[in-house]
């Protein structure tokens, strides 16, 4: 079983549109949406939810006022400025439990905290494992790990040979959680100064974890010179640009209609995506 994760560093470069198109092209995959913070893949794949599970990512401190004698020990030990006026601010509380252990009156309990949900769904393109982190929650990395673990279980049970994952933006905790141990990462970049900057950071990250990475330039013809610059940059650091997708309004139409690009278009972007997919298939199957 192989795992391909699509990431970007910079947000909004076209990860989800691309993964949606790949989903329609690949025949025997489990799909996973690891952008649990702002999950959008379901808007293209139109899943029918079959299983829903609660996700408890950690604990939050709760002070029992009837036991609290306001000694101030909790304020002293909390490093997250999460306690004000002997009340816990649950946005700041990291669930470390130090206050609870330090409290001489045993007035602080650590309560399990529901921080999101995860789902197993059926789509026309195969099973989809996805999640929804609660608003303003933490522990997205743990939820990503949960989604990946479930995707593996589903792939094993249903004898799928590929897990195709839509990853989160950035280089922090959810991204690390999404890519560690994957077989191949595809980085989607856009031809802008910010796109180049962020591509460099995410390639540093894949190198740090020693995960093979390919690059795809999206909307490359919107700024051909910048694309050229990014290609040179990739060549210099030994990263292969596996695909170049032109700007094409049909991509927006596909998103607006909630369907994978390759199902609604034969245009230049759809063709480029198909070529890229063939390349990825060879790469991921060929070792």
């Amino acid at each position: 079983m192989k795992e391909l994760v699509v990431v970007s560093g910079k947000g909004g470069t076209g990860k989800t549109s691309l993964v949606g198109a790949f989903a329609a092209l690949c025949k025997n995959a489990v799909l996973a949406d690891c952008d649990v913070d702002a999950a959008d893949l379901h808007l293209i794949l139109q899943p029918e939810i079959q299983e829903q599970h609660e996700f408890y990512g950690g604990h939050k401190a709760q002070i029992r006022p009837e036991k609290c004698n306001r000694c101030g020990k909790c304020l002293e030990v909390c490093r997250f400025e999460a306690i004000n006026e002997f009340k816990v601010n649950s946005f700041s509380c990291e669930g470390c439990g130090v206050c609870s252990r330090a409290c001489p009156e045993e007035a602080i309990v650590m309560a399990e905290h529901l921080s999101g949900h995860w789902f197993i769904s059926a789509t026309p393109y195969g099973p989809l494992v996805h999640a929804r982190l609660g608003l303003a929650e933490d522990n997205s990395g743990k939820l990503v790990a949960q989604v990946r673990q479930m995707a593996k279980t589903v792939a094993f049970d249903q004898k799928k040979d590929l897990i195709l994952t839509d990853g989160p933006p950035g280089i922090g905790c959810p991204v690390i959680s999404a890519i560690t141990g994957a077989d191949l990462v595809l980085v989607v970049a856009e031809p802008t100064v910010a796109g180049l900057h962020d591509l460099g950071r995410v390639l540093d990250l894949t190198a740090y974890f020693r995960i093979p990475a390919l690059v795809c330039l999206n909307k490359w013809d919107l700024a051909p010179e910048k694309s050229e610059e990014i290609e040179t940059y990739c060549r210099e650091r030994g990263a292969e640009v596996a695909g170049k997708i032109p700007f094409d309004v049909e991509v927006f139409k596909a998103v607006a209609s909630g369907r994978p690009l390759v199902e609604v278009s034969q245009g230049p972007a759809a063709q480029a995506v198909q070529e890229l997919w063939l390349k990825l298939q060879t790469r991921i199957g060929g070792d």
């Binding site: 913070d37 946005f91 608003l135 303003a136 929650e137 933490d138 950035g170 959810p174």
Partner: peptide, 12 residues
């Protein structure tokens, strides 16, 4: 981007 802890830390 997003709606989780890094955004909360910024917007708070």
């Amino acid at each position: 981007p997003g709606t989780s802890c890094p955004v909360v830390a910024t917007v708070a």
